[in-house]
Amino acid sequence: MAEQVIVSGWMDYEPGDRDTMLGHLVELGLRTRTEEPGCLDYAMTADPADERRIRVYERWASQEALDEHFGTPHIKDFRAASAGLTRVGVSLEAHTVAVSRSMR
């Protein structure tokens, strides 16, 4: 079994652009989770303490699945739709995970 990849972090947008970006991310997330079997989780959420910040969490079955994600038609559509929005900061990291365990 391939090692999973988790992408986590945040993106900051001008306050007036954040909600518009979130709308684009909701559509992107729906298509990603539906159309990409290598996507195990995909969530972008507004940070309630910062009007600029979007929190990022993605979980992929493999690095290959993540790499393929960037070439999909819905990523191209997303990039075109969000091209005019102003991102003012970003901190994203990819983590390779060899072992996971339930915390129930």
Rank of each mutant, 00 (worst) to 15 (best):
A2C: 11
A2P: 14
E3A: 15
E3T: 13
V5F: 04
I6E: 09
V7N: 05
S8M: 14
S8I: 06
S8Q: 11
G9M: 02
G9K: 02
W10I: 03
W10Y: 14
M11R: 14
M11V: 15
E14W: 00
E14I: 10
G16A: 13
D17K: 05
R18S: 01
R18G: 00
D19Y: 05
D19R: 13
T20I: 15
M21V: 11
M21Q: 09
M21E: 06
L22Y: 01
L22N: 06
L22H: 09
G23S: 12
G23I: 02
H24V: 05
L25G: 00
V26N: 08
E27S: 12
E27V: 14
L30R: 15
L30K: 13
L30T: 15
T32Y: 01
T34D: 14
E36C: 03
E36N: 04
E36D: 09
P37K: 10
G38Y: 02
G38T: 04
C39I: 06
C39T: 11
C39Y: 03
D41A: 14
D47R: 07
D47G: 07
D47H: 07
A49E: 07
A49M: 11
A49I: 02
D50H: 05
D50W: 02
D50I: 10
E51P: 09
R53W: 02
R53K: 05
R53Q: 08
R55P: 02
R55I: 11
R55M: 11
Y57D: 08
Y57R: 13
E58D: 11
R59P: 02
S62F: 07
Q63N: 09
E64W: 06
E64S: 12
E64Y: 08
A65Y: 00
A65F: 00
L66V: 04
E68W: 05
G71E: 06
H74A: 03
I75F: 12
I75N: 06
K76L: 13
D77S: 14
D77Q: 15
F78V: 02
R79F: 03
A80D: 08
A81L: 09
S82P: 03
S82R: 10
A83D: 04
A83S: 12
G84L: 13
L85A: 07
L85D: 05
T86Q: 12
T86R: 15
R87C: 10
R87N: 09
V88M: 03
V88N: 09
V90Y: 10
S91I: 00
S91G: 14
S91F: 06
S91V: 06
L92M: 08
E93M: 12
E93Q: 15
H95N: 11
T96H: 10
V97L: 09
V97I: 11
V97D: 04
V97W: 01
V97G: 05
A98V: 03
A98G: 11
A98I: 06
V99N: 14
S100L: 15
S100H: 07
R101C: 07
M103I: 10
M103E: 08
R104H: 12
